[in-house]
Amino acid sequence: MDANIKRSIILDNYEDKTNRMDIEDTSYIKHNSRNVSCIDNINLYIKINNNTIEDLKFNGEACVISTSTTAIMCKLLKGKTIKEAIDIIKNYDSMIEEKEYNQELLKEANVFDDIYKQPSRKKCATLTWHGLLEELNKYE
């Protein structure tokens, strides 16, 4: 993908407020993801019904990479079954780690396929994906 296109997808999602809000509704699981360097700090709000991610929202203070990838993740995984979601997260992880992965599954998340060039930002790119995985694993 062309660098300019990637950049504009990252920024569009960075600005996108559709899924960016705090949720009080207790039918959502709240998961706090923090970077150990203690700077990115995002709350995920996960609503699961019938083994399906019925809704996924987030809010917090974080860098452009974490924020944008979380917005993409929310769109991508909403409506997926837990099993499908876990599979997508694993493929995303493989991409970040430069391993084999299924590009088709990742849609817009493919924009982070060269984040390995900035090793210090891998954490930013995976922070909330891992947070979500931790919650989903509890259902497996």
Binding site: S37, C38, I39, D40, E61, A62, C63, V64, T67, R121
Partner: peptide, 21 residues
């Protein structure tokens, strides 16, 4: 702009500052 993004930007110019809490 989030502080860490500013730090990454400045680092492109070899300017070392600290971002964080």
């Amino acid at each position: 702009i989030f502080a860490q993004d500013t730090a990454v930007y400045l680092d492109k110019y070899n300017i070392c500052i600290r971002a964080g809490n």
